[in-house]
Simulated assay, not measured.
Amino acid sequence: TFSNYSEPNRTWVARIPSSANIQGTTVKYVFYISDGTLASAWGRISGDGYQTTWDEGTVNPFSYTVEAPLPVELTSFIALAEKNRVELNWSTATEVNNYGFDILRQVILRQAQDDNNWEKIGFVRGYGNSNSPKNYSFVDSNPTAGKVLYKLKQIDFDGTYEYSKVVEVNVETPKEFRLAQNYPNPFNPETIISYSIPEFMVRQAQNDIHLTLKVYDMLGREVATLVNEYQKPGIYNYKFSISNYQLPSGIYIYQLKAGNFIETKKLMILK
């Protein structure tokens, strides 16, 4: 409701029901003046009864509206590159109907930022409704080397969304083509196979590198193709799960191939 709070001072009071659950947020009061002009003021909702005041001076308002607060008040968003991973951290002060956050990434190699070239790499569920600070984190374990941009797509339960600011990190470019020993080894049922693609290989090919990562038994028979695609320079971590291939216990060979570069190592499945 909107009522005349103090006639001598010509101060008006907006009272918002507590069910609105927006205490502590800032809202905008827009006053529609009888002569057709507008006046507005910002007020912070506080205290019992959710009320604030606005001194109208000599204005004689006859109606008002209150603009709804943003569903999520994002207070910080940072990205930190460490070796072969990027850690994203962000915080919110308040949340209303917050379903969660899509994590979006864009790699800048030779061109400028492209608003149509963002890829979704993950999702973090929100707290829904909250009047207290909340902290979030997400780890990009396979960042492409070079300048990498990140942003958040905050999504409400009704499907509406809003983007955060863009943060930027520089991920170190590998200096050599390398296939690491899988870890753990022996393993069951999963292991991580890491490998790196250096920038010079992309420069030589004048394009992304076509790469394959395959697994063979000790007789040389191919039993699994893990990667078969074009990739950019960077450090990659592939999670190999034997449940997808139903392989028996034993020693296997895994091979990474990109152009003229080939490297192989052994792994052991122990059930």
Rank of each mutant, 00 (worst) to 15 (best):
N4Q: 10
T11S: 09
V13P: 00
R15K: 13
N21L: 10
I22T: 04
T26K: 13
K28Y: 05
F31N: 07
S46G: 03
G57E: 12
T58Q: 14
N60E: 13
Y64P: 00
A68D: 12
E73M: 09
L74E: 04
A81M: 03
N84S: 15
E87M: 10
S91D: 10
T94V: 13
N97E: 13
N97F: 09
N97R: 06
F101V: 01
L109T: 07
R110A: 14
Q111R: 12
A112T: 11
D114G: 02
D115M: 08
I121C: 03
F123V: 03
G128A: 06
Y136F: 13
Y136A: 00
D140H: 02
P143K: 01
P143S: 09
T144Y: 06
K147L: 13
Q154R: 05
I155F: 08
P174T: 10
P174D: 10
K175W: 09
F177Q: 02
A180F: 15
A180S: 15
N182Y: 09
F187P: 00
P189E: 13
T191N: 04
I193G: 04
S194P: 02
S194D: 12
S194G: 13
Y195S: 08
P198D: 15
N207G: 15
K214V: 14
D217V: 00
G220K: 04
R221G: 11
N228P: 05
E229W: 02
K232M: 14
P233D: 06
Y236K: 07
F240N: 02
S243K: 12
S249Q: 05
Y252P: 00
Y252L: 05
Q255F: 03
